[in-house]
Design a protein around this nucleic acid. Structure first.
Lengths: 163, 163
DNA sequence: TTGATAATGAAAGTCATTTTCATTAATTGG
DNA sequence: CCAATTAATGAAAATGACTTTCATTATCAA
């Protein structure tokens, strides 16, 4: 099922209404393969659709999160970011504390051990957040020290990786 | 070395000054073995030392973090918490999304795999955050559904645990 | 087409920090 | 010990990232 269909179905299921702003925001959101903040998305949306307000982007992103089109991530830097989640499998993040580049990673062995760990405490795991902070090779050799998180981050592709 | 000594040494090293509020805040902070918010610590501090302001607690906690006496943790609920870090080994958190109880946990195998994972990307790991969210046994059987995170959380002791 | 009401944009409100600024209090050279 | 220097503090104002309100606009079912 396409993302637009996911949204449609969700909207219908809840007795909500279709709207242009939501379509437009979804389209722009999908076109940006990146962890994005509300402000960044708002800026991108306004380029194509000047009339759309911040609150609408905010509310729409919440809506997307509700229907599984995006999920919130927190890199402990004060602002929440949103990433595509529909059709994207679970992954964790590897973040360079120097230049802000990040990778989406998954290690199935770690995932298994997390389940085991949690069971020991009688918990039933719902989800987890694992962020690994460190310095990337480039930053360690002194290159690329200027790129900021606000620049264009490099990412691994799509949660394929490790193990 | 005692915590107070750590603070003293740090202050001297930076050419800062000793102060009563800082001593008092440290003393109260150390007396509370829990993940605490600024407001909670401020409230506790004021009981013994009414004159101390919020900003001082805020700044002092930042100072503690700088000298390794505490570290910030984020349970994605909007407020930062602070936990003792001096003499406390690294640990991750297992949080019940229903009642807010949490456990401090460590799994050395996971730690090893994290190192391995990061190396694959040419990163040098500095630190990580791993929070596992789920439901505890009590909440699953319907007991204890009322306790809030603001209540007294149960915790495992001190990062001893799992393998 | 139209009434009911969801969606939107602009603006105001929240809330957890952060920072400012006038004072107070450590330090230190004398 | 004393005064000058300046870090530390408390109260209040400022930030910044959301959240919510409210008057309008836009949907949609009848």
């Amino acid at each position: 099922m396409k993302e637009t269909a996911v949204l449609e179905r969700f909207i219908e299921g809840k007795g909500l209404r279709h709207s242009k702003p939501r379509e437009q925001i979804l389209s722009v959101f999908l076109s940006i393969e990146q962890h994005i903040t509300i402000d960044e998305l708002w800026a991108a949306v306004r380029k194509k659709h000047p009339g759309i307000g911040y609150a609408t982007v905010y509310r729409t992103l919440k809506l997307f999160a509700e229907c599984g089109l995006c999920s919130e991530i927190n890199f402990e830097d004060g602002t929440t970011r949103y990433e595509h989640s529909y059709g994207h499998s679970h992954h964790d993040h590897l973040i360079c504390t120097s230049c802000g580049k990040f990778f989406e990673v998954v290690d199935s062995e770690i995932e298994k051990l997390q389940e085991r760990l949690v069971k020991r405490y009688g918990f039933q795991l719902q989800y987890h957040r694992m962020n690994l902070y460190g310095t990337c090779r480039n930053c360690r050799v002194g290159i690329d020290r200027r790129a900021a998180r606000t620049g264009v981050p490099v990412h691994s592709g799509k949660g394929r990786a490790a193990s």
